[in-house]
Simulated scan of single mutants.
Amino acid sequence: MKNLFVLILSISSINLLGQDAESIAGLWIISKVEVGNEVMTPDAKWTRFNDDSTQESGNGWLQHSYGEWSFDQKLNELLITTSNGIIDPFGAFRVEFDDHSMKWYRDEEGDKVVVSVERTDKLPATTRDQLLGLWKLDDLKGNDDLFKEKVTDSDYLFIRWDGKFVAGTKSGKKYGVYNVHAHKLEIELIPYGGGSRTFWSVEFLEEGFQMTLLDSERVAIRKFKRIKQFPK
């Protein structure tokens, strides 16, 4: 499992059977990674192969790597180099190719690795991407450092693109930073000024989302609806 991060972060080379460069070009989502008996679904991991032999990779709306790719049609091998990433030591993947999907196979230190890849025409959204924006507190149970047990018309949560949040209440604003788990529906809130760091599970609802505190000693639930203006 220690090399799974290398696999997901940086794809080095792929052995593609019976296809040409035009079949490879485009945007692809990594929908599932199987390593031995373990299965992991990356959060909106994607790679784009451009016609000019450049490539970019990222998660959701965030691009985090770039480089080049080349295809050897005689050997049916696709080589991807990442200019700002790390070297993948495990070599080529054996590939099964369908009209809108691929599967990549290889062995890593005795584990069989299977990567499922699907063609798409738009960037997928991560949990973090879906949480971005302004949210009105709609219902709550229990206390925490940001919101108390009674909902008011002034309560909101603003999740900013730069990793910071603002919690507005009738008594004022509280600021902090947040982290969203890369593989789980979880968010970590870290208030400035000595507030307690808290971890919450996230559930998306029809009109918003719900956060449930991950704490065995107390219960706290927050429900939010999206709004387009700050409460007065």
Rank of each mutant, 00 (worst) to 15 (best):
R94D: 14
F93H: 10
S10K: 00
V202T: 05
G36P: 00
K32G: 01
T41P: 01
R106E: 07
V39A: 02
V219S: 13
D145N: 06
A220S: 14
I8N: 10
T169N: 13
G195A: 09
T82C: 13
N3W: 05
L189M: 13
E206F: 02
F97I: 15
G26P: 00
L4Q: 09
T212F: 04
W200G: 04
D155R: 03
S13F: 00
G58S: 10
L123P: 01
T126L: 01
D145W: 01
G195F: 06
Q63M: 15
R160Y: 00
R160F: 00
F49Q: 12
W46L: 14
R222C: 06
G91L: 12
G18Q: 08
K170G: 05
E68Q: 14
T82I: 11
K223G: 00
W69D: 08
G58I: 07
L4S: 09
L75H: 06
K103W: 12
G142R: 04
H181C: 13
R119L: 06
V115A: 10
G60Q: 08
F209N: 01
G208V: 03
W28G: 01
V39R: 01
K174L: 09
N76P: 00
G172V: 06
N15I: 05
I8H: 03
R128S: 05
E34R: 03
K174C: 01
Q63Y: 04
L62F: 12
D155Y: 02
G67D: 05
D215Q: 04
I14A: 10
L79F: 01
E207R: 11
D98C: 11
R94N: 14
Q210Y: 02
H100G: 06
L140F: 04
Q55N: 13
K228Y: 06
F204R: 08
E109V: 09
F49K: 09
E77L: 07
D144P: 02
E68Y: 15
A220M: 04
G60C: 10
S154T: 12
N15M: 03
G91T: 12
W161A: 15
